[in-house]
Design a protein around this nucleic acid. Structure first.
Length: 649
DNA sequence: CTTAGGG
DNA sequence: CCCTAAG
């Protein structure tokens, strides 16, 4: 059941078993049905739906810090075995934890050709499947501002060890995953006060507003770094729960891949043993990424706004920085990443293997309708696609309801993972790192592709009906793929000179689990094909970045901005940032500048034309006033400059 | 990295 | 918000 691919750096890849989930909350699907019930279900919707589901899954964190019941849990097994040299040819896999009969654990284990795989059972995931909110709340332990926290942690397994563990169904999530707003997340986020940063050597406790975290020191023995990469892909469990989509804010944002010895110990910061290591900057591609990650991992939530003016505009988390400069640098680097990747990614999509074999097969599943009621798990596409009843005849007892297409995605393969970790890192941290990498990539950097008879269905506007996806003879040929999201291409994605580079678009074959319930056999090619993936791919797509989520400025933020600009002027955004938004790490000076720009614009248009949360007229007036004033100042300055220049000449 | 602007 | 050109 584990696919072991040959990786450039030794790891063979990760396979994540399907994760059956309870379907209790299915009845509250709410918004999820909205999209799929449209008779004109577009292929696009299907894609989005699937993607949305994946993202939703990504919000449940295995190593969440706070659980709904208030208990802290550490998810990934702790084993401080060091120097095991696992960077060499040791496949990693993620699988359901055998002992996990309580539903919620899985194992990350290392495989060695010689040694029996060592398995480490992860402790139960603290996220009750039926408690979306609490699950979410417990997830966000870092970088709330970017809302990546959740995204970077995905519950990969929820393994109730049932026979159908690997044949889970897909309950498609809302296609409009972008709609899951941050509002909720935001709220939840603010309650997270768990992640305590550790400074090299000593723990720093944060308490309440005004307290800052330490620098983003990582806790590894910072010796040589080992770049680990799963060149090809990992399989992701099929999504399958019925959690109401609406209750899951979507986590978007940059993907972060980082490993930290103690960050899984909810109380880790107070553990000296884990805080004695220091982080050494990593050289390679993942470097910035990791730094970014690190930086973001230690945001601390401050319950209330700071008193001193603007420095805590949004009362958000603040890391301890050795100095502001550094802080800023990190921020910058974060921002830089995305666009670079995008550029690259652009090239990557040039060639797509059209002839790919449906790696990811979908099939109607006998179990689909098992639950009988509307809450039954399984993907339900209420799309008026007539023929589902007999879809894939080979499959039995398919219960079709009018014209709905029922699909079951057995699993997905995650494209590729890059992990960079010091040699001296512990196995435990390696595991966590892998876990985070997996969750991160699932959290946002992927898009879903649809294959029909091995061919990509590119036209998102076509309906399932039009594309023939709904026809039973086609069901068999339907497949899904996870591909790097074009809008967030990884760095150096485009070698540009390698005609043989496999397109990331290339469908990644589904890993066939030997589950008896597998309705569709997986093409045997997958493993081999993956192994052939050109090495170039490897170093090129470790990080997938997501466009930052939109975060409207609150009135208080606007006020802070206005006040700062009134004082500093319109040309010193960095200072403005430092002055008024130093603690709002998600607000870059560019953001502030942009906001000011829009504020000025807003102030000039009629109130009727304004959108979003209304900004008090008083503030807008101040905006205009300040803008006028500083514009004038600027003009004066220029004149002055010019005259001086003239004088010199 | 910052600014300044266009997109 | 993103992306860039400039400085």
């Amino acid at each position: 059941m584990v696919l072991q691919k040959r990786l450039d750096y030794g790891f063979n890849g990760y396979q994540v078993p399907a994760t059956p989930r309870a379907t209790r909350s299915a009845r509250r699907r709410g918004s999820f049905r909205k999209k799929v019930e449209d008779n004109q279900m577009f292929a696009f919707d299907l894609l989005a739906t699937v993607a949305g589901k994946l993202l939703l899954e990504g919000e449940k964190s295995p190593d969440s810090v706070n659980t709904s019941n208030g208990k802290e849990q550490c998810v990934i097994a702790e084993d401080h075995v060091k120097n095991e040299g696992h960077a060499e040819d040791k496949p990693l896999k993620i699988e359901p934890c055998d002992q996990g009969n309580s539903g919620g654990s899985f194992i990350v284990s290392e495989l060695s050709s010689q040694m029996p795989s060592q398995k480490y059972c992860l402790r139960e995931f603290p996220c009750p499947q039926n408690d979306a909110c609490s699950a979410l709340a417990s997830v966000i332990t870092s970088d709330c501002s970017e809302k990546v926290g959740c995204a970077e942690k995905l519950v990969i397994g929820n393994g109730k060890n049932e026979t159908e563990s690997f044949a889970s169904k897909v309950e498609v999530g809302s296609s409009g995953f972008r709609e899951f707003n941050d509002r909720k997340l935001e709220n939840e986020t603010k309650r997270q006060i768990k992640v305590e940063p550790i400074k090299t050597g000593r723990a720093i406790l944060n308490t309440g507003a005004g307290m800052f975290g330490s620098e983003d020191q990582v806790v590894w023995d910072g010796k040589p770094s080992v770049l680990v990469s799963s060149n090809s892909s990992a399989e992701v469990p099929a999504c399958r729960d019925n959690i109401p989509c609406g209750s899951f804010p979507l986590c978007r944002g940059d993907v972060k891949v980082v490993s930290r010895d103690d960050d899984d110990n909810s109380s880790g910061c107070t553990q000296p043993s884990t805080s004695t290591k220091s982080f050494r900057p990593l050289p390679r591609i993942g470097d910035r990424r990791i730094r970014k990650l690190l930086a973001s991992r230690y945001w601390k939530v401050t319950p209330k706004l700071k008193e001193d003016g603007f420095s805590n505009v949004d009362g958000e988390v603040k890391p301890i920085y050795r100095n502001k400069r550094n802080c800023y640098k990190r921020q910058r680097s974060q921002r830089n990443y995305p666009f670079k990747k995008r550029k690259l990614l652009y090239c990557s999509s040039v060639s797509n293997s059209e002839g790919g074999n449906g790696n990811e097969r979908i099939s109607d599943s006998p179990q689909m309708g098992i639950n009988g009621d509307a809450s039954g798990s399984g993907l339900k596409l209420h799309g008026g696609i007539g023929t589902s009843a007999s879809v894939a005849g080979q499959h039995t007892s398919f219960q079709s309801r009018d014209s709905h297409v029922k699909l079951r995605i057995k699993s997905f393969r995650v494209p590729e993972l890059f992990i960079e970790i010091p040699e001296t890192a512990t196995v435990g941290s390696l595991k966590r790192t892998v876990m985070e990498a997996v969750t991160a990539i699932l959290g946002g950097g992927l898009r879903v592709g649809v294959l029909l008879r091995g061919k990509k269905v590119r036209d998102d506007s076509k309906t399932l009906q039009q594309t023939g996806i709904s026809q039973d003879d086609q069901m068999d040929a339907l497949g899904f793929t996870l591909e790097p999201n074009p809008s967030q291409a990884p760095q150096a994605l485009c070698p540009g000179d390698n005609p043989f580079l496999l397109p990331y678009d290339t469908p990644q074959p589904l890993i066939s689990v030997t589950d008896s319930k597998a309705l569709v056999s997986v093409p045997a090619m997958s493993v081999e094909a993956l192994a052939v993936v050109p090495v170039h791919r490897k170093s090129k797509r470790s990080e997938i970045v997501q466009r930052r989520i939109r975060r409207p400025f609150s009135v208080s933020e606007v006020e802070a901005l206005v006040q700062a600009v009134e004082k500093l002027g319109t040309g010193r955004w960095r200072d403005v940032k430092l002055r008024a938004f130093d603690n709002a790490k998600h607000r870059t000076y560019v953001d502030l500048k942009d906001k000011w720009k829009t504020l000025v614009h807003t102030a000039r248009i009629s109130p009727q034309q304004r959108r979003g949360e209304p900004v008090p007229q008083e503030l807008l007036d101040r905006v205009l006033t300040a803008h006028a004033y500083w514009s004038q100042q600027q003009a004066k300055q220029q004149l002055k400059h010019q005259s001086e220049t003239c004088l010199l000449l």
